[in-house]
Amino acid sequence: MENAGKHAVYRLKRVLLNDKTLPTGLPGLLRSDLTKVIASYFDFDERELEIDIDLDASGKYHIKIFAPAERVKNVKIL
C-alpha cells in the first residue's frame, strides 16, 4: 500500500501523455501562419517548409521548423 502513491503517479503520467493530442486543424493553421511570417522576411518556397511537432516523456512539445530560403527580403527595421 505504501508505494501505491508512487505507482499512481507513474500511471497518471502515462495516461496524461497518451491523452495529449494536437487539436484537429492545428498543424494546418500553424503551417499557414508560419508561411506568411517567414515569407515576409525571406524568399522561400513554402513547399519546402517542414514542421515537426514531438512530445517528450515529460509532456513538453518540441516544435522544429525547417524552411530553406534563397535570400532575405528588403525589410524596414525601425
Binding site: M1, E2, N3, A4, G5, A8, V9, L12
Partner: peptide, 10 residues
C-alpha cells in the same frame, strides 16, 4: 494520512 505514507498522490 495516506499521502504522508506515499499511498496516495498529494
Amino acid at each position: 494520512d495516506l499521502s504522508v505514507k506515499g499511498s496516495m498522490m498529494g
